[in-house]
């Protein structure tokens, strides 16, 4: 393809010099949590994890929804599950949301609840990054560690993180 492609690339300095307009969107939102997630968030305040069971397929959905997307019908009942599960995948973040390097790397992963096969949430994991890199973290049994009740606000952050379940623990 001996073709000269169109386009006018700018080096950073040229970009700085080019005529530009700057704008910041003033976009503020209040996202409605809806029936299912509202209850889920409220129960986090109580230190409990609640899902919704589909009476058709029997699956417990966490995060809970008022409908089962597999069967496409309303879910039938609220079900508490123990805040215990297994690590399905885990990663070590060395950068913040804004791309700066973190002083202390953060471990994040998906935890699939023991009482609700196929349903997981993602959260921080309080484990050694080396366990992630060596893949020993996969399948590890973990439990939620909660904020003190007074500090909870009905947020996913009411769970501080998940950490390994000790020997002989629940």
């Amino acid at each position: 393809m001996g073709y000269k492609l169109p386009g006018t690339p700018l080096k950073r300095a040229e970009f700085e010099k080019a005529f530009k307009v700057e704008d910041k969107p003033e976009a503020k939102y209040a996202w409605a949590a809806g029936q299912a997630l509202s209850r889920f968030l409220e129960e986090l305040k109580n230190g409990r994890i609640v899902g919704r069971r589909c009476r058709n397929c029997g699956k417990i959905l966490i995060p809970p929804r008022m409908y089962c997307e597999h069967c496409f019908r309303p879910t039938g009942e609220w079900v508490y599950v123990r805040p215990v599960g297994r690590i399905v995948t885990a990663v070590v973040s060395y950068i913040a949301a804004t791309r700066e390097r973190l002083e202390k790397p953060e471990v994040i992963g998906i935890v699939e609840f023991e009482d609700a096969p196929g349903s997981g949430i993602f959260h921080r994991l309080n484990i050694d990054p080396e366990l992630v890199i060596s893949r020993k973290a996969f399948g590890m049994r973990v439990k939620a560690v909660w904020k003190p009740p007074k500090e909870r606000e009905g947020s996913i952050n009411d769970i501080l993180y998940f950490e390994p379940v000790g020997e002989g623990e629940g």
Binding site: L10, F15, A18, F19, K20, V21, E22, D23, K24, P25, A27, K28, Y29, A30, W31, A32, A33, G34, Q35, L37, S38, R39, L41, E42, G154
Partner: peptide, 19 residues
């Protein structure tokens, strides 16, 4: 009143549009 809302905004610091 039990239904929750979650507040947030678009965190982009801004856009620079070339002319």
């Amino acid at each position: 009143t039990k239904l929750r809302h979650w507040y947030g905004d678009m965190e982009v610091e801004g856009y620079l549009y070339t002319a």
